[in-house]
Design a protein around this nucleic acid. Sequence first.
DNA 1: TTAATAAGCGTCATATTGACTATTATTTTC
DNA 2: GAAAATAATAGTCAATATGACGCTTATTAA
Lengths: 245, 245
Amino acid sequence: MQPQIIPNISVDCVIFGFDFETKSLNVLLIERFLKADEGNEPLVNDYVLTGYHTYEGETLDETASRVLKELTGLDNLYKKQFKVFGDPNRLMNDRDIIWAKNQNFNQRTITIAYYFLLQTHEVNLRNTEHKAQWFPVDKLPALGFDHKAIINEAYADLKEKSMYKPIIFELLPDKFTIKELQDTYEAILGTEIDNRNFRRKLITKKFIVKLDEKQVGISKKPSHLFMFSKDIYQKAYKENYLINI
Amino acid sequence: MQPQIIPNISVDCVIFGFDFETKSLNVLLIERFLKADEGNEPLVNDYVLTGYHTYEGETLDETASRVLKELTGLDNLYKKQFKVFGDPNRLMNDRDIIWAKNQNFNQRTITIAYYFLLQTHEVNLRNTEHKAQWFPVDKLPALGFDHKAIINEAYADLKEKSMYKPIIFELLPDKFTIKELQDTYEAILGTEIDNRNFRRKLITKKFIVKLDEKQVGISKKPSHLFMFSKDIYQKAYKENYLINI
DNA sequence: TTAATAAGCGTCATATTGACTATTATTTTC
DNA sequence: GAAAATAATAGTCAATATGACGCTTATTAA
């Protein structure tokens, strides 16, 4: 028996993936398609975030994790509930009205938006029944509902947090090079960073731990691998309130 | 005619006020009271945040502003939607069940939590029809529902933001002394700060503007007054992405 | 063997910080 | 009206961090 959904409350998930090939911060979107009656243009043909209604008896965090798992098969990713979108007319552009009519929903719906962080290669797109695809966060396709706004707010939050919290490591593999770390920062912040100063600054942090390993299978000089120690970070910053406005 | 409420969605407001007399960050709470049938102990006698259901046709931000205005008469304060509380059993302790029965609501309700920032003396408590009262954020009374958790999350968010954003000025009068600014930081962060280093650090910021005015009606050496220039701040930080983990 | 390339080390001037000492401008008290 | 008390404000000094660079080294491809 299907669990009962709460019709006016949903969760939408912005799935951010960092792609090390293209050094691009991407968002995972699914296709929304509705064929026209005759041989005309499709009525709806755009992309949306993955999301679904909350079930009775389920927490919002559980809804978000369930929705993520259904699309990607993944669990235990960094998850952040960052904002609620509840404007009365948030589902009111033309395509959305056609879509809503087709899907038989017409109530005002409030959506709790989450974002998740991972690397694009962690997701096997062929496994998904939806047509899911990665898009660079700065080259998004036409989006349904208010999902463009949701993505932009998620990105703004991620950008801000990445400047003062070690959230960026959620986008990196466990073992990474300083250059990869820098690439990720540059992609998120949209800036160029001097490589030598960046190295110095990061390598001197105690929570960036140098491993006894080097990159393999790389042409050019192979780089050392590092890891992020959450433990050391938390110990160091527990009692350390600094004003930095 | 009354607007229609959305029964399973509400907004709760954490109203933070800084009290310069006691140098304490306070929260404005309203009394929740339900008399017992006989001369017994009251059935419910604790405090809650102010909050109410969203109306159809109203944005969540509008709900929050409306609720704030009803309690305090105030408008245009700093407002932050910081988290949603939607656990299925969030209203399930004994007193809450009694209260819910008395008020005829029993549905799962999801609440969107906001916090507001102001100075305690801006609110005239005698004007309010509810029994509203300020409590220091670290000395809260017995609270109904999950409101203790909501306040703690709001405080954690405020604390974090105050370290890297100029949010603290929302708790201060337009014209303030450096000592008042320091007191506010110390109260929020719960730390002691060296007065001389703090002065130097803040006074050298271009967005802290020294006025041609001094405190009046004070014994001891009167201090200069300063103001915060949002304009200067925003211009300076628009293009200035710094990693500070 | 050499060229090419990215990794990684070093330098220098300037700015910021943390920990203190000292001075100044007020009001209250004697 | 002088002295004491108190808070505001200025200044010092060593250590550390930053921004803007130049240079060396390890590796693979040619």
